[in-house]
């Protein structure tokens, strides 16, 4: 399982570096509290590559101290219009935790108009444990984001409502709220600070606390 995650990370990195331009490599660590596991931490590496040939890819891998391994890869085709960017993507994801394998595959589309972006997609999930498997065919993924400082140089402050953060593709009834700040002190270096809250039972209308974590990251661009 860890090998598969590593493989996805390596493939993503290879594709990105082979093209040789517009690459972001982010190394991040997070720490938080989960209602089931108490305090926990995670480390992740992610690559984001964008070519000027309308092709981009984002992916990476994450390991969490609760014994969860996640890997994800999202190649996408984009086109810029006067009003913003429209893109279509393929989602490929994998997680392993507590003897349970999750395989996810889907397609989605995004509209990014600068201060706001919206992604909507559909994905399939197969869970396996031993010789048995369960297929979950009805999953929507979404991300609504607001760039609070989209006209400010060197700074980003984003608020997102999503069930499909990198490495955390949940079922559609399980959204989380994130606040992410980025600071780019020099051209090739960025620092990230984030806060994420995930309730349980929100769409049951009987919500409860589930998870809160913060993360810090360093992004290198070349």
């Amino acid at each position: 399982m860890k090998r598969l995650s590593l493989l996805i990370l390596l493939i993503t990195t290879y594709i990105a570096t082979a093209q040789g331009q517009g690459i972001d490599l982010t190394i991040s660590a997070k720490g938080g509290n989960n209602t089931l596991y108490g305090y926990y931490g995670a480390v992740a590496a992610a690559v984001d590559y964008e070519s000027d040939m309308h092709f981009a890819i984002r992916g990476g891998a994450q390991y969490s101290t609760i014994g969860r391994v996640a890997a994800e890869c999202r190649p996408r085709y984009y086109h810029d219009f006067d009003f913003g960017r429209v893109s279509g993507e393929i989602l490929l994801g994998y997680t392993y935790q507590s003897s349970l394998n999750n395989y996810m595959a889907g397609v989605g589309a995004s509209l990014d108009i600068g201060c706001i972006w919206l992604t909507l997609g559909y994905y399939l999930r197969t869970m396996t444990m031993g010789a048995d498997y369960i297929y979950e065919p009805f999953n929507i993924y979404y991300e609504l984001g607001i760039r609070c400082l989209h006209k400010v140089e060197k700074w980003d402050l984003n608020i997102t409502f999503t069930n499909s953060q990198l490495f955390e593709i949940e079922r559609h009834y399980q959204p989380s709220f994130a606040l992410d700040a980025w600071w780019y002190p020099v051209e090739r270096l960025g620092l990230q600070l984030g806060l994420n809250y995930k309730p349980a039972g929100m769409f049951n209308i009987s919500s409860d606390y589930y998870q809160l974590y913060g993360d810090v990251g360093v992004c290198v661009r070349w």
Binding site: N34, L36, Y37, I66, R68, T95, Q97, S98, S99, L100, N102, M127, E170, R171, H172, Y173, Q174, K198, A200, G201, M202, F203, N204, Y210, Q211
Partner: peptide
Amino acid sequence: GSGNMPLEETA
């Protein structure tokens, strides 16, 4: 959209 358990809890 009626919620069930989060994925980590399912696992």
